[in-house]
C-alpha cells in the first residue's frame, strides 16, 4: 500500500549499504526535533505553578518515572533517561503516523526491531555488567532439580531470546494492522454509495481507537523495557 512505501529522497551509498535519506528518516528527524523543541519550549519558563505546556511535559516525565520506579525500584531510576527517550520517541512516531498523508515509521519492522534490539543489547549488557557471569543464573531458577535442567534451561533461554522479537512484532503489527484496517474501511465508503455511511462511522470510531492504540503501544514498549531492566538489575525478583 502506498502509505507504507519507502521513498528515497536523497540517495546515499555507504560502503555498499543503502543509507539513503528516506521518508522514514524524514519523519524520524521530524519526531526528534518535535520532541526536543516541545520539551525545551515547554520547560523554558520553569515556573513553580506550571502552565499548560509545562504540565504536559511534567506529566509525561512523571508518567514514565512512575512506570520505571514501579517496575525496577530505586536502582532502575538510573536508566530512566533511556526508557523515557524510547517512550517519547515511539509515542511521537505513532502519533505522527495518525496525521493523514504522513508516514508511520513504526509500521515497519526494521525500525521496531532495531529499537527492540537496542533494548535487548542494553539490558543484557547491564545484566552482565552488574552481575558478571552470575547473570546466567537468570536461566536456571533456584532449586531446580537436575533432571529438569535440560528442559527448563533451554526454555528460559528461548523465552529470553524471543523478547526482542515479540517486542518489535507487537509494535509493528499493531501499527500496520490498524492503518490497513482504516484504509480498508475507508475504501468501502465511496464504493458503497449511500450505504457508505456505515463504514464511515466505523472509520471514525477506529480512528479514535487507533489513537488509543498508538499511545498504548508506546506505553507497552516502555513498560516492557522497564520490566526487562528489572530482570537485569534484580534477577527476576520484584525488587
Amino acid at each position: 500500500m502506498e502509505q507504507f512505501e519507502i521513498n528515497r529522497y536523497l540517495k546515499l551509498d555507504l560502503f555498499g549499504l543503502d543509507a539513503s535519506f528516506t521518508n522514514s528518516s524524514l519523519f524520524m528527524v521530524i519526531a526528534f526535533f518535535l520532541i526536543i523543541g516541545f520539551l525545551t519550549y515547554a520547560m523554558s519558563n520553569r515556573s513553580l505553578v506550571p502552565g499548560r505546556l509545562q504540565s504536559v511535559a511534567e506529566l509525561s516525565y512523571e508518567f514514565v518515572a512512575n512506570m520505571v520506579y514501579e517496575n525496577t525500584g530505586k536502582e532502575g531510576m538510573k536508566y530512566f533517561p533511556f526508557v523515557f527517550s524510547l517512550f517519547i520517541f515511539v509515542l511521537v512516531l505513532n502519533m505522527l503516523g495518525m496525521i493523514p498523508y504522513s508516514f508511520t515509521v513504526t509500521s515497519h519492522i526494521v525500525v521496531t526491531f532495531a529499537l527492540a534490539a537496542l533494548v535487548f543489547v542494553v539490558v543484557t549488557g547491564i545484566g552482565f555488567a552488574r552481575h558478571g557471569l552470575g547473570f546466567l543464573k537468570l536461566f536456571k531458577p533456584e532449586g531446580l532439580p537436575a533432571a529438569l535442567v535440560p528442559i527448563i534451561v533451554p526454555i528460559e533461554l528461548i523465552s529470553y531470546l524471543i523478547r526482542p522479537i515479540s517486542l518489535s512484532v507487537r509494535l509493528f503489527a499493531n501499527m500496520m494492522a490498524g492503518h490497513t484496517l482504516l484504509k480498508v474501511f475507508a475504501g468501502f465508503v465511496v464504493s458503497l454509495g449511500v450505504a457508505g455511511v456505515v463504514p464511515l462511522i466505523a472509520t471514525v470510531a477506529f480512528t479514535g481507537l487507533e489513537f488509543l492504540v498508538a499511545f498504548l503501544q508506546a506505553m507497552i514498549f516502555a513498560v516492557l523495557t522497564s520490566i526487562y531492566l528489572n530482570d537485569a538489575i534484580n534477577m527476576h525478583d520484584h525488587h
Partner: peptide, 10 residues
C-alpha cells in the same frame, strides 16, 4: 515445543 514452552513461560 521448546518455543511453545518459552512463549507460555512469558
Amino acid at each position: 515445543l521448546l518455543g511453545f514452552g518459552a512463549g507460555m513461560l512469558n
